[in-house]
């Protein structure tokens, strides 16, 4: 093999670090959107590498739906302490109490869409001009159209038909007052790349990603974890399952899969052999064919 050559993970890493450094160089008040999921953990790890040996010069923003996996919260607090960075929490519960957001009702109610209100509010309150996220283009068809530097107007909205062209590795972060950017350093990574990278760098992730025994109910072709926020419907019963999660979101909408993958290597092997997409277990994406585009236009992550 050629000596002066990077393998695909090294090249993707170099690209992501370059993007993160551009954000810090071009913006006044950038931040990392941290959900506690593997993608935002990888982005945070890349930010650490980008500024080593200095600390990450960015706060982490967590949009708290109030419907969290307890494991995610413990993980978040430990990581923040270890990195010595500021944590900003935007609370959906708070937005509801202030009357800015209205809780959905009905059988499929969730707080997923309400996150947008809280997120935009938090961005405005802390005058964040660039929010770095872990979205990837391979996740979803609307995300396949995203730029690395994605412009948001002063209502926080995305205009997919009117995006700035992005050429070579030159990024245009120019904006007017009140507008902001969403930046996606791992745009070009696939789920497989993320897992291989976590394995290669030995990055700590929440235990929920590993196979564990958990009480769950079978609903909409997925194993939904039992929590105080889930009401049993007719004919549903709670079962004990050896399972793990491929993505982590709000506990009410994140389904798990049956799995015995309890090490990173086993997860990588499982992901390589799987025949369905990781967001297949996310009920928020199933509401309509373009539900992601519709939510993103409004300012969803």
């Amino acid at each position: 093999m050629h000596k002066y050559y990077l393998d695909h993970l090294q090249e993707l890493e170099a690209e992501a670090i370059y993007v993160i450094r551009e954000v810090v160089a071009q913006f006044d008040r950038p931040a990392i959107l941290f959900s506690g999921g593997k993608d935002s953990i990888v982005v945070t790890h890349l930010a650490k590498k980008a500024f080593f040996p200095a600390k990450i010069p960015l706060p982490l923003i967590h949009i708290d739906t109030g419907h969290n996996f307890p494991e995610t919260m413990v993980f978040r607090d430990k990581l923040v302490e270890k990195l010595g960075v500021q944590l900003i929490v935007g609370s959906v519960e708070g937005s509801i109490q202030e009357g800015k957001a209205v809780e959905e009702t009905g059988i499929n109610a969730s707080r997923n869409a309400l996150q947008t209100v809280t997120l935009l509010d938090t961005i405005e309150k802390y005058k964040i001009d660039a929010a770095i996220g872990g979205a990837r283009r391979d996740e979803e068809k609307a995300r396949a159209k995203e730029r690395f530097f994605s412009h948001r107007d002063d209502f926080g909205q995305w205009d997919p038909k009117n995006q700035r062209p992005e050429l070579w590795n030159i990024f245009n972060g120019k904006k007017n007052m009140g507008e902001h950017f969403r930046v996606f350093p791992i745009s070009n990574w696939t789920e497989m790349d993320v897992w291989n990278y976590i394995l290669h760098e030995n990055i700590a992730i929440p235990s929920l990603y590993f196979a564990h025994e958990r009480e769950a109910i079978y609903r909409d072709n997925t194993w939904l974890p039992v929590s105080e926020f889930v009401t049993l419907r007719d004919g549903e019963k709670v079962e004990k399952k050896l399972m793990r999660f491929r993505t982590l979101g709000d506990i009410t909408i994140t389904g798990g899969i049956e799995s015995d993958a309890d090490t990173l290597q086993k997860i990588v092997d499982e992901v390589a052999a799987t025949r369905s997409t990781e967001r297949g277990n996310r009920s928020d994406d199933k509401r309509s064919e373009t539900s992601m585009e519709d939510r993103k236009r409004q300012g969803y992550f």
């Binding site: 068809k141 396949a144 159209k145 997919p160 038909k161 070009n188």
Partner: peptide
Amino acid sequence: LLTDGLRAEREQGITIDVAYRYFA
């Protein structure tokens, strides 16, 4: 339909923007 992601593209059956696809 796999490559055309935006609502307008699906309605009109054309690719408007650059779409990025991944395989290995």
